[in-house]
Design a binder for these strands. Structure first.
Length: 596
RNA sequence: GCGCCCGUAGCUCAGCUGGAUAGAGCAACGGACUUCUAAUCCGUAGGUCGUAGGUUCGAAUCCUACCGGGCGUACCA
């Protein structure tokens, strides 16, 4: 089985240098230290949970609560903590182990932290925090999947931004990822735009009108809807056109090809700005008939049933779901039939372990049904499918509706944010010399949009108010970009490079330690964000890190720190932070600009 | 009706698989630029974590009921 002329593979997981994860080894070392000490005192083996981060009031990097031990060891957590703490002889990398109530707090040796964390960040560059490459699974991530009858809007932007961030995070966590999309390029909605063009298009083209192809076709779609209100024959005409399309009628197909190309050319421009990339693009016109054989298979196995009118159904009431139609009574397939077929084909033809569908929360039920059918059919991979659903995007006027035109257009939004950031650059107290002003402004504008979308947990609805939502102050993309750009600016002013040396023991300020402690957490934050398919965790952590460095930056000097040794050590810190910020920003799909 | 998601400061949100005194940003008010980028920093103020029970040594976090908001529940996609 193939999906027409489309070929289904070009996997591109090049082998890259292995990146060590020393910062994560520390928490392993702490677990070993505890379990060995417990064994020594109590003659009993215990499972030690992963160390957590203590609250701010505690001056330590790692903490382990002794609650889980108390039942096994038949002693109070406080007493266990006390005994373990007094028994541990800290190795060189550990400064102190203290019991505070039921908690064991581990404070690392400062110069060990600086040396290890900054050393890693300097060595790994903008890959700081990544896991060893190629250690994970092969995962297909399906996202974007637009209809080719109108331009992309804010809802698509959320999907694309979330999609790319998840793809990047999964890759950083060591997985091999295939970014995929299905163009919904057939159906009645496409035919509506075609009818409108044939009736009212007057042979205009995007070129002749000087507008993007997707916007041009989108206007046709809106034109149809407006005209159809007064002319019920138009809808019949669209239905007729769909029939002609399915019969392969030449003029219809030719018009369809032309208009689809206009739209897709337009999409490509928007995708390029957004930074969305795909390794596998399928088209519904090629896949919409897939899945009938899967239904037939289920029918033969007695898992599905046929009703009197000849329609085919599956009963999922044992799974807490309803009956669901899989084939219409006339034998034609439904949306879910196609999803079934596409998934089966993908798992058969691509060597993938998992699929993640990034689709809005309004389709939660659909995916529950789809996955339940996979299980019913007994596919080994049935439990390796996940739907990453995200909340709706609301405007002040309510839900966006393409047909009514109350949408925030993706291209307009990016343009708007670009010119806003350009305006801020002009007003800046200090005119930074830039030869690529427009490009930097676009990076900052996109950074604002992307960060605003990613800082919320995916499942939350977003109430988008264009006036107040996007800003360049506070917890924003620009804030983090600014912190990075500032550091780069300092680094440009010096001849220093890491191979010229820096001594971690010269870093003794609290603000230096606070900052590097947050860097210490970055690898596990990236890992957790990937595991939970939740970029918000990384987005929020990056803000904390930038904030912490900004506090250091306003309080202490780098280039004129007082001594050459201190300057070099702080340059090491600055470079490490810049690398960490860049690493994190780029995982979120945000450019780490050099100057702004 | 049934199912899923959400409810934390005036507003927008964090709060990691239950853990130490619930944290930010915005808005408000008061401070800091002849100093490495002030798109920055500091300070003040602001919360019975929707309500009521329950589980637990311990609950914003888990369970139950209810209240409020959203999304589903198509031979649509």
């Amino acid at each position: 089985m193939t999906s027409g002329k489309e070929q289904l593979v070009l996997r591109n997981c090049s082998r890259e240098r292995n990146i060590s994860m020393r910062t994560i080894d520390i928490s392993e070392a702490i677990k070993v230290l505890i379990s060995e000490t417990v064994k020594e005192i109590f003659r009993t083996a215990v499972d030690v949970p992963d160390p957590e981060s203590p609250p701010e009031m505690i001056d330590a990097e790692y903490a382990v609560g002794c609650f889980p031990f108390s039942r096994i060891l038949r002693d109070a957590p406080n007493r266990i903590a006390e005994q373990v703490a007094s028994k541990i002889i800290p190795p060189g990398w550990l400064k102190t182990v203290t019991a505070y109530g039921p908690y064991l707090n581990f404070k690392l040796d400062e110069s060990f932290i600086f040396k290890t964390v900054l050393g890693e960040a300097i060595e790994q560059g903008d890959r700081f925090g990544y896991a060893a490459h190629g250690s994970g699974q092969t995962i297909l991530v399906e996202y974007s999947s637009p209809n080719t009858n109108k331009p992309l809007h804010l809802g698509h932007v959320r999907n694309n931004v979330l999609g790319m961030a998840v793809i990047n995070l999964l890759r950083a966590a060591g997985h091999c990822v295939i970014p995929a999309s299905i163009m919904n390029d057939r159906g009645i909605h496409i035919c509506k735009a075609m009818v409108a063009y044939r009736r009212f298009g007057d042979d205009r083209t995007p070129e002749s009108m000087g507008i993007k192809g997707d916007h041009f076709v989108g206007e046709m779609y809106v034109t149809f809807d407006r005209a159809a209100k007064n002319d019920s024959l138009l809808l019949d005409e669209a239905r007729m056109m769909l029939r002609l399309w399915e019969e392969g009628d030449d003029p219809t197909i030719e018009l369809w090809r032309t208009m689809n190309k206009w739209v897709i050319d337009g999409f490509e421009k928007t995708y390029r700005r957004l930074g969305s990339v795909f390794e596998l693009v399928q088209h519904e016109s090629q896949t919409y008939l897939l899945g009938k054989d899967v239904v037939q298979d289920g029918l033969e196995k007695g898992l599905f049933f046929r009703k009197d009118d000849n329609s085919v159904w599956v009963d999922l009431s044992t799974e807490g779901l309803d009956e669901k139609a899989l084939l219409r009574s006339d034998g034609t397939s439904l949306y879910i039939t196609q999803d079934l077929g596409v998934a089966v084909e993908r798992f058969r033809n691509l060597k993938i372990d998992r699929v993640v569908y990034i689709v809005g929360s309004e389709q939660i039920y659909h995916f529950n049904v789809l996955f339940a059918i996979f299980r019913k059919l007994g596919y080994a991979w049935a439990n390796q499918c996940a739907h990453l659903s995200y909340g709706m995007v609301y405007l002040p006027e309510g839900k966006m509706k393409s047909r009514e035109g109350n949408v925030v257009d993706a291209d307009d939004l990016i343009d708007e944010m670009q010119s806003l950031s350009l305006a801020v650059m002009e007003e800046s107290h200090m005119q930074i010399e830039l030869d690529n002003r427009a490009a930097v402004a676009e990076s900052i504008g996109l950074g604002a949009i992307k960060y605003y979308i990613l800082k919320f947990n995916p499942q939350k609805d977003i109430h988008f108010d264009p006036r107040n939502s996007l800003s360049f102050e506070g917890a924003t993309g620009a804030y983090i970009q600014y912190c990075h750009a500032r550091i780069r600016s300092v680094l440009r002013k010096t001849e220093w490079t890491p191979d010229k040396g820096w001594n971690p023991s010269d870093l003794i300020q609290q603000e230096e330690l606070d900052t590097v402690r947050l860097m210490l957490l970055l690898p596990s934050v990236i890992r957790q964000s990937a595991r939970d398919l939740n970029p918000a965790r990384l987005a929020n952590h990056l803000w904390d890190l930038a904030k912490s460095f900004n506090v250091f930056y306003t309080k202490h000097r780098i280039l004129d720190a007082g001594s050459d040794a201190l300057t070099r050590a702080r340059l090491g810190l600055a470079l490490g932070v810049a690398n960490a910020l860049k690493s994190g920003l780029e995982l979120l799909g945000i450019d780490a600009v050099e100057a702004m």
